[in-house]
Amino acid sequence: MKLRKLNRSIHRDLGYIFFFMTLIYGLSGVALNHIDDWNPSYIIRNNPISISEAPLSKETLNRSEVISLLKTYAPQETYKNHYFPEDGLLKVFIEDGNINIDIKSGEGIVETSKRRLLLHPANYLHYNPKKWWTWVSDIYAISLMLLAVTGLFILKGKNGIAGRGAWLTATGILIPIVFLLLYYWEVF
């Protein structure tokens, strides 16, 4: 009886403590699962730009000239640096992105990136940025296992682990095992 009460207390308190971390890892987990389809941390915007003075001469495109072009064609952007990654291509670094300009045609793209409000910090933490956070996330991972185990024994009776809970738990165990076998047998 005492053991069950202790089990409930552990489950309840760990649930409270790690409520927010579960949201962080859950949210960023979904976002990072689809990393091939989008940038989960930044909103990337591409806008065309056209320099009417083109063709431009690489020799005359010094820092002040590039700043001058920026003021004319992208006045909202702040210059950081520039260089020529390849012949005929000017890359200008701006405060929140970069601009690639074909100096012959004058056509270019302004690429700006802005941190996603919730996902950037969530993904930042998910990537285990620093060693202290690694310790915190280790504690969280262990606590998740405790939460899972203690969760099995919260209820007694027909909905507990001896009844309906057993079937649901078995289903949950089978799902990853089935996938694992399918992958090992290279079914897909």
Partner: peptide
């Protein structure tokens, strides 16, 4: 480990 990650804003 102490630095952890570089932010995209460092470009340029």
């Amino acid at each position: 480990d102490a630095i952890g990650v570089f932010e995209k804003e460092l470009e340029g």
